[in-house]
Amino acid sequence: MSEQSDTRTPDTTPATGTDRVKRGMAEQLKGGVIMDVVTPEQARVAEDAGAVAVMALERVPADIRVQGGIARMSDPDMIDGIIAAVSIPVMAKARIGHFVEARVLQSLGVDYIDESEVLSPADEAHHIVKSDFTVPFVCGATDLGEALRRIAEGAAMIRSKGEAGTGNVVEATRHMRSIRAGIRALTTLDDTELFVAAKELRAPHDLVVEVARTGKLPVVLFTAGGIATPADAAMMMQLGAEGVFVGSGIFKSGDPAQRAAAIVAATTFHDDPDVIAKVSRGLGEAMVGINISTLTGSEHFATRGW
């Protein structure tokens, strides 16, 4: 390698917004918990509990479900307030396809943008071309094909969608199992079969080949949507998540600071039932859950995204 590079003058100009810088940022979040917050005070509670990042939004998904209406990008003043309040990275959500909301969030200096199905979609066919941005993006996915389509558009991190705002982990489990099973299936295929797999996954062939060869996504895979307890977080880690988003589960519960710290500990020690048992004591009430089967068509956030 060094022999080949001897002929070139090393490029010393700092390069921002590269794939390595965007994906590398997500690598630093691994093994951590990213928490939804709606105020600077909540952001500080999250940081003190050990969150690796906070997601700044105006309403947590549980409230979006109750209150209805169009859910949009948050107020810039609110995002500024949260950025000023903490030293950890601040993420914020843009509507699916709303590339101007994303430009605004980049201009505000957020560290990661979530192109999120939790907000009302702004485009029913197209997602944001995320490779055009300096700021990295995370996107939701329900299966491997959806994950690879988002990566092709430039997503630097994937989260399983789950069903946000329900406190019910069943959809997160389904999506994580689906993504992981899809990856495992690819590793057994030969070169000819991978062309068909790419067609069936509706994903670019080069990404399909890369996943088949490495046995993993080319970006970090987190879980999201319905995680409400330390045991939920630990189960998702054991199912192959590299980290956890917790939305309504913390600040809609009885004792947010303690529950947040407990979920952080259970994520690190996800394979140690003694630790999970210890941190699960005395947490007060978990958020009230919703049975997914009672949701009607448009109430399923996970079906948003194409």
Partner: peptide
Amino acid sequence: GRQVDSFEST
């Protein structure tokens, strides 16, 4: 700086 200022260089 923030993540938008993250970079690679020699």
